[in-house]
Design a protein around this nucleic acid. Structure first.
Lengths: 334, 334
DNA sequence: CTGTTAGCGCTTTCAG
DNA sequence: CTGAAAGCGCTAACAG
């Protein structure tokens, strides 16, 4: 890799570095057609590539945004990233990627690093949106995605969890269920979870916690057995009543289906079921499962769209929550 | 954003920029404890952050690697990215992310841009590993992942497609199937697909194409109906023989299951089935589906590991294909 | 222990 | 139309 510089090119072409620089930047007005052709020739012959860092330094141009992802392995998240990238591409920003692998500490490290590397802006899909680290970020150049802080200090764009669950559970209600249950991982104060539950409550008006069923998240075998036992109890209590379950997400749904299968119950005969999130496999179940389709891609896009506005228009604004609507996919699972 | 520079800090502390620079780089040997404390104070008071670009330029230190992803939305791929990132983090490289969204042209643009931005190395998960763009890449500082070119010119790390399919199909053979079929998207000369088929052939020794069933990829409704018709024919031809299907990936499996369901057949009674790829939902099918688990994470890790070796040891090497083993997950689906 | 100064590679006035 | 030269913000000899 012969470290060619603009100087070398200038010598070869018998012009000054300024001319080469102009050529590189498409300012052809300032040179004869001849030197232009000559330069073109030399540069493509030598495969010269101007040093990107030097260039950035000289024009103090920083079009890079940092992305901090809680867990890139989550299919929802990779859709979001896809949306972010697509917009970055449009707006000619490059994206510096980091992944926290669900660790709060890594998240902090990543954000700190991004700050040190002087990115123009940051989009963060937080492990913990209430982490103190976010107080070191300015709303001027960052936006959050998916999970929202209890006190909004950063613009965030998220799915409309509450409304969409409320609507789907309303649909279930119309089918005259005697008892509806909300199946979820432990809340742990995570906004996506609690909001979905709120939607459930808003639709059902239940006033006790009796209709809440917890599934272990990364539990031991024993805990799953306990969960199955809980389901068994519920089913026994509802032998002559119509019972339905709303699952907080697909993984929870899988656990429920597993338990039901093990207990010998099947939907929609023995129970009704619907879920947050949509995956391919729900379509090939018999019958397909009613669900809520999130527009994760659009969340990513919107986030970058907002960030860009803030970056380029420099206007101050109150931290705002932008909710992205979902879509109901109805089948005969309840 | 008070554009503070090292110079400002130097003035405030009544020292030279050199001292500040030394402080910033942890060279405390060259200064009194007093000025060190003083500097520490001033820098944290002013929240001064040295300009990253200038720093890189000055030390000509380029620890960034570019990643070109064919489709980040693919769950397999996001595992790979996760592995790449984890290693980058270890080795203190930052990662510049790009996504081609399955477009060959975008892939070319992305790689070109990464090159122009002067990344130290590139890891690419190609849309088309035979694209001419890869001839402009040096094996010295790039590695490919997942799909492999027909003529290897770049180190690549991929799943051991052939061997793993052969082994799983061998398992099927042991169950005395009369006829086995390979269900796949059109090959289109894509290495992952053809290699899996080769594994199938190696295990079965079939010499005709009669055992190959194509599923449309992004087809119209009519094409899927045609596919279902094909399956119907196969099932009719095998009413008194034991028939099994191996699916090239999960999406293909879903199509097969859909067709079978529509036709009123169920496994393992009417047919046997196994597939490449593993997803959560395969566990809750009745019975769970036997499959091949790829270690995508490890592919990403390995890719970055190799890249780093090349980058830091500068040794020339022949382009090499590194195959990552898989794991058989056996259930009673065949 | 601390300061001077010449770069790093490119951009950009401002003269010619 | 072209070139000289002064930066961009930081680093790293080299002096003192």
């Amino acid at each position: 890799m012969g470290k060619l510089t603009i100087k070398d090119i200038a010598m070869m072409a018998n012009v000054s570095t300024a001319t080469v620089s102009n050529y590189l930047n498409g300012n052809y007005d300032h040179m004869s057609l001849e030197t232009r052709k000559n330069l073109n020739q030399i540069i493509s012959d030598t495969k010269f590539r101007p040093n990107f860092t030097a260039r950035n330094l000289a024009k103090n141009d920083n079009k890079t945004i940092g992305v901090s992802i809680a867990d890139i392995t989550n299919p929802f998240t990779s859709q979001v990233l896809s949306g972010i990238y697509e917009q970055c591409d449009n707006y000619h920003y490059r994206v510096l990627f980091t992944n926290a692998d669900n660790s709060e500490q890594k998240e902090i490290d990543n954000i700190t690093r991004l700050q040190n590397e002087g990115v123009a802006g940051i989009i963060v899909d937080p492990v913990n949106p209430d982490s103190p680290i976010y107080q070191s970020l300015s709303n001027q150049n960052t936006v959050m995605v998916d999970r929202q802080a209890t006190n909004l200090i950063i613009d965030t764009v998220a799915t409309d969890n509450l409304a969409s669950v409320e609507e789907l559970v309303d649909q279930m209600q119309k089918r005259n269920y005697d008892n509806l249950y909300f199946v979820t991982w432990p809340f742990q104060n995570i906004s996506t979870r609690t909001q979905r539950y709120e939607g459930f409550i808003k639709a059902t008006n239940y006033s006790t916690l009796n209709h809440l069923v917890a599934v272990p998240h990364h539990g031991k075998e024993l805990e799953y057995q306990q969960f199955t036992a809980n389901i068994a109890t519920i089913m026994q209590e509802n032998t002559d009543t119509k019972v339905g379950f709303f699952c907080m997400n697909a993984r929870v749904l899988l656990r429920l289906l597993q338990a039901m299968q093990q207990l010998g119950y099947s939907y929609p005969a023995d129970y009704g079921v619907a879920t947050y999130e949509e995956f391919d496999w729900m379509q090939v179940m018999t019958p397909p499962i009613s669900c809520i389709r999130q527009d994760s891609y659009s969340i990513g896009q919107t986030a970058m769209h907002i960030l860009r506005q803030k970056l380029e228009q420099k206007l101050q604004r109150q931290p705002t929550l932008k909710l992205i609507p979902t879509q109901q996919i109805l089948h005969d699972s309840f």
